[in-house]
Structure formats: C-alpha cells, structure tokens
Design a protein around this nucleic acid. Structure first.
Lengths: 164, 164
DNA sequence: TTACGTGCAAAGGCTTTGCAGTCGG
DNA sequence: CCGACTGCAAAGCCTTTGCACGTAA
C-alpha cells in the first residue's frame, strides 16, 4: 500500500510538468492538481473519489477535465488505470521506477483493494501465452473474496458474485 | 473452445428447466430460448451478440428479459459472466460438471477470447490469499496481447493498452 | 496572440427499473 | 386465477463529445 512516499510524490509531479513542457502542452493548475491528487493517494481512487477529494481541497475540477487529465497521465505511464469490473475505472500511481507489476485482491464486501506480487505467476503466464502462440503484452490477475476486516463479521449473502 | 458438445447443450437446457420448476418459476419460451442460445455458443457472446443471434433465429427477446434471464443463469451457476473491461459483459456456459476453472487470453486487436487452464496458477493464488489473511472466493486471470492470427499482420499502434 | 485547455451540458453506450399487459402453473 | 414474466420506454451510471470562453506560453 505505501505507494507514494512523501517526496516521491513531488518527484512525480515534477516529472509530469517536464513531460507537459516537452510535449509543448500547457501546464495548467487543474492538471497539476489532478496529478498531485493521484500521486498522493494511497488507495485506488475512482474518478468520483478524486473529484470529491479535489473539491474538499478547494479545487473544483470539471468532470471532463478530470477524465482528460487522467488519460494524459495514463498515456504518460505515470498512472495506471484499472477496471475491476464494477463499471467504472480506478487509478493508482504507476511504479515510480521499474515497479514490480502487481496484482490485486478485491474485497467483495467493502470494495477495498489490496495488492500482492508474485514473480512466478507472471513468468508462468508468459510461458503459457508463448505455448499457445499468443503474443504477451500485459496481464491482469485479481482475487475476489473477503478482506481480513470483513471476513470476521457475518452479513447476509453477497451481492456480488462476479469474476470468473 | 469446444465448450458445448451437441447434446451437452440439451442436458444443460434440461437442467435449467428443472431448476426453474424447483424454484417454482415459470418456464417461458424466452427463458428457454436465451439459455439455449448461450449453451449453443462456442465463443463468449455479449448481450448484443445474443440478442442478434436470437433475432436471427426468429426470437425477438426484449433487452430487459435478456438481462434478467442471464442473471438467472449466472445465479444458477449454469453460465459464467465475464467483464473484460470493455464496458459490457460477455457470457459463456459454465463447466457442464466440475469444469476446471479457466483463464482467458484476450486479443487486443480483434477481441477474440481464447482459454487456458493452469492448476498451479490457481493453487498459487489461493496460497497467496491465505498468507495475506484474505478469504479466497474467486479469481480472474487475463492475458492481453495478440492472438496468433493478428500477430502476423502489421497494423498501426494498438488502440487498447488497458489491463494492468 | 494563438493554440490548447476548461467547464458545462448534451450525447453515448451499457444496464436497470417502472409499469401495463400477458401468460405459465 | 394469481403471481411472475415480458416488452417498451424511461431512467441510471459512467464516460465522451461539442462548444463558447478562458488562459498558458
């Protein structure tokens, strides 16, 4: 979870500025605010989460701008976009530098997302793809279930039964 | 790919009927038609695919009914729902009997979906979940890339860069 | 100054819901 | 007959687009 250390975030922000300048794109207050908010996040915020947090900070960014800026950040490789199958995207800071690709636990109860890594998993996937003459580009691994907090309590039946 | 053998489909249909009777739910022409269409499919059709195929067969099923019937089939465990992150669901017949859970290759070019299985992968995931005190319910593994057909041709850059 | 960004609101794509009419058991 | 289903259309969500106005460089 400790994705963005205090000043790592600052470094990322600087990287974003440079990136914009290099592309000869305007460095606007909104773009910086959105980027900062994502870099600051320790979780996997959705668009709405980000918008709410920004508003709380006094930055009322328009929805369209938010989407467009996030596209920019994703293209730039500074941010990752996830689709956990709930109908909307979630975002997180991409590994500051050569971050190990990581997988996700998604709690079906509270929606919380935790992470884990497993090199062997990835190697195995690449090999399997190769065997089937499939050219590997990327992968996604999600484990759905109950997080430590939620597994204690007894609720009614799950509303979600989604993922394969 | 050879998911539903000729008469396996018939068996599944029968199972669905029984299931409806047991639940005291009406066995309607529409429900049977939708179920049959999914059981017959050799691919991972979307809602629209199914609707088109049914219409071609002379069965004009309403969108709402289609969604509701698919929910029913998924709840029953006869059909699996997948969300490959394109904003809409795709379906497939669930293993006739204790089918090995399987993973997917998704071609970023043509959208085709191929499958593979790997017991070790699943075991590894369960173990990892356990280590993190996460209660495993289900998982999803997708490999994104280019299928054998598409990797030959040279197109422009990919429009998709999605999955983590 | 000028190209690009921003915000609002409208439009889109997929899915869900409300409701009157219909039908299975 | 009654409860559940069906189909249509309206409504909901999330995301994208169009456009007049604003702003970084």
């Amino acid at each position: 979870m400790p994705r963005p250390t205090p000043d790592e975030a600052a470094a990322l922000a600087e990287r974003f500025r440079r990136l914009l300048r290099d592309r000869r794109l305007p460095v606007t207050r909104q773009r910086l605010a959105v980027a900062a908010e994502v870099f600051r996040a320790e979780d996997h915020p959705s668009i709405v989460d980000l918008q709410r947090r920004l508003r709380a900070r006094g930055e009322a960014i328009g929805t369209a701008t938010l989407y467009r800026t996030l596209d920019l950040l994703v293209e730039s490789g500074l941010v990752r976009r996830h689709d956990f199958g709930k109908g909307f995207n979630r975002f997180e800071t991409a590994a500051a530098s050569a971050a190990p690709p990581h997988e996700h636990f998604v709690c079906q109860r509270c929606g919380r997302v935790a992470e884990f890594t497993n090199d062997r998993l990835e190697r195995m996937l690449r090999m399997t793809a190769d065997e089937q003459r499939f050219q590997y580009h990327a992968h996604r691994i999600e484990v759905h279930g109950l997080c430590a907090e939620c597994r204690g309590r007894d609720f009614g039946p799950l509303g979600d039964a989604g993922a394969s």
